[in-house]
């Protein structure tokens, strides 16, 4: 593995409102109040439309729940009067979601990207002492329950793209499920 693989492969959160993933045509829709206690329930309501054929449904559930959690907590500040809107579509090959909140948008996006880049650089240098400072992303608003890691995982998981809109209060994401094969294509 070359020294720069981490950096070449770098995943960044991008803002791209014109990305096709923001196209809502044919997507199912649900909206929820920003009640932190019900995040798990909302996630289940969404995931229940995923076909039975999808393996690792729990991982999908967890990832969706993280995104909704971000919308409820960091976007809408758990204000039940504010809504979280979710557009979604699943089949055995993909999961496509758009999650929108009524917040002011993810202002720390650039800070997060810089943090992530720094973290990956340190990882590439294998400087484990420094790495300790880059284990999780925290801001002044973070509380003890914020792991600060959800977005790192999200960037890895949503392998078909993870984009914010210009206002940064909506995120569109796509997961492509690997298809089983028994022969060389």
């Amino acid at each position: 593995m070359s020294e720069n693989t981490y950096l070449n492969d770098i995943h960044e959160i991008r803002v791209d409102e014109n990305n096709p993933l923001f196209d809502k045509t044919g997507l199912l829709y649900k909206e929820f109040p920003s009640d932190y206690r019900q995040i798990r329930y909302f996630t289940l309501l969404i995931v229940q439309s995923a076909p039975l054929e999808i393996k690792e449904i729990n991982l999908l559930e967890q990832q969706i729940s993280e995104v909704i959690k971000n919308a409820v907590k960091h976007g809408n500040h758990s204000d039940p009067a504010r809504k979280v809107r979710v557009w979604y579509s699943f089949d055995s090959t993909h999961a496509h979601l758009i999650v929108q909140d009524e917040g002011e948008g993810f202002r720390d996006l650039e800070v997060w990207n810089a943090f992530n880049r720094k973290r990956l650089e340190i990882l590439a240098e294998q400087d484990f002492e420094k790495l300790a400072d880059y284990v999780s992303f925290r801001t002044q608003k973070s509380d003890d329950n914020d792991g600060g890691n959800a977005l790192f995982a999200a960037l890895e998981y949503w392998n078909g793209g993870f984009f914010f809109n210009n206002k940064r209060n909506a995120v569109a994401m796509l997961k492509k499920f690997p298809q089983k094969k028994h022969a060389i294509a």
Partner: peptide, 8 residues
């Protein structure tokens, strides 16, 4: 040997 389910 079998061809892997996901990789070549």
């Amino acid at each position: 040997f079998l061809v892997d389910e996901f990789e070549d």
